[in-house]
Computed example of a mutant assay.
Amino acid sequence: MAEQPPARVWVMRSLYIGLSLSIIFLHLLPLATSPSRWFAPDLLMAFTFAWAMRRPEYVPVISVGFIILLADFLFQRPPGLLAGLIVVGAETLRARSVANRDMPYLVEWMSVAGVMITIIFAERLFLAIFFVPAPSLSLVLIQLAMTIALYPLVVMISHFLFNVRRSAPGEVDALGHKL
């Protein structure tokens, strides 16, 4: 049985944090002087969910919460709302990761798409309940559609570039616990 050394887990956790901070930095760069007519896909959510489905031990809940909360502050979103929803979504996908290990990729994609749709509409609901101004629904739906469409590319990048793969049946960690 294949073992995952503890050093590899910590390297991959650090890589997740570094990748997330790089995405935030690139998003904050002033590349255009006029406002955009579309929202870019939410790569933080896509990478978080891809890694949570494939290797849940690489994305601990504290890291996910911290990164998305930092993004909330830097992107001037309501602090903690999207962070909390993405943490709940990542934990939902983490709980399903063992069951989805043997399922085809299309089932994984649809599961992640369902969680993304739920998060976006829950965010809209909370913003409406507390009378917080929300972005245009059409822009949010375009961003959601682009994020869902980009998810397979994120999975391919994670798989081939970062070697984040589904755990094999019977695979154990360094302590002998099943993955």
Rank of each mutant, 00 (worst) to 15 (best):
R54K: 09
A90R: 07
E57V: 12
L70H: 03
R96S: 14
E57N: 08
L93K: 00
T92I: 12
L28C: 09
L93I: 13
L69G: 05
T33C: 09
T33R: 15
F49V: 05
P78D: 04
S63K: 03
L85P: 01
E91C: 03
M53A: 14
I23T: 07
G65E: 05
F75A: 08
V59G: 01
A95G: 10
L29V: 15
G84Q: 08
F49M: 14
V64C: 05
I24L: 06
F39D: 11
H27I: 02
D42C: 04
Y58T: 08
R37A: 14
Q76G: 04
P35K: 09
A40S: 12
I24F: 03
R96Q: 15
V64H: 06
L93V: 10
F49W: 10
P78V: 10
T92G: 11
L82W: 12
L82D: 11
L85T: 06
P41T: 00
R77E: 14
F75W: 06
Q76E: 12
I23G: 04
S34A: 15
V59N: 00
I67T: 05
E57I: 13
A50L: 03
T33W: 15
R94G: 11
E91W: 01
L28K: 12
V64D: 06
L69C: 08
F49Q: 06
L81S: 06
Y58P: 01
L21Q: 08
A71D: 04
P56L: 02
L26N: 08
A90C: 12
G89N: 03
W38C: 09
L81V: 15
S34V: 14
V61P: 03
G65C: 08
L44C: 01
Y58I: 08
P30V: 11
L29P: 09
W38S: 15
F75E: 07
A52Y: 05
F47S: 00
L81H: 05
T48R: 01
M45Q: 09
P30S: 13
A32D: 12
P79Y: 08
R77L: 15
L93F: 01
P41A: 01
L82K: 09
G80K: 04
I86K: 11
R77F: 13
L31W: 15
